[in-house]
């Protein structure tokens, strides 16, 4: 197989993107949607570290990845809080029951 390191990794990153986006689009469950977002963030983290490795700019790439992880945690805490509040109101986390808002 004649593939560069960048080619190999980027193909897998794209596959992760496909998996995450698919799961967000198909699911009706709020927590599963958040898990889909998590998968996408994982793919992006891998891409950032890969870019740093290939260009030798690992210091900057790692700094970015670490900041990103901090944001990710805070984001998930707030998102979890909103999901729990929705659950307290509706008794469900199924988006099919949440169609009160018209887009």
């Amino acid at each position: 197989m004649n593939v560069s390191l960048f080619g190999l990794f980027s193909v897998f990153v794209i596959l992760l993107f496909i998996a995450g986006t698919y799961s967000i689009l198909v699911t009706f469950n709020l927590i599963r949607a958040l898990i889909g977002i998590e998968i996408l963030i994982k793919a992006v983290t891998l891409l950032i570290i890969l870019a740093g490795y290939l260009t030798g700019n690992l210091g900057l790439a790692q700094a970015i990845a670490i900041t990103l992880i901090v944001i990710e945690v805070v984001f998930m805490v707030v998102a979890g809080g909103i999901v729990l509040s929705i659950f307290r109101h509706h008794g469900t986390i199924d988006t099919r029951n949440l169609r009160d808002l018209k887009g």
Partner: peptide
């Protein structure tokens, strides 16, 4: 809460796009 969650999902998606751009 529903409006917030909708914004949250879209905003997260925007985040992913912006971060991929930064990686590139």
């Amino acid at each position: 809460l529903e409006g917030a969650f909708k914004y949250l999902m879209l905003s997260a998606f925007a985040t992913i796009l912006m971060l991929s751009s930064i990686a590139l």
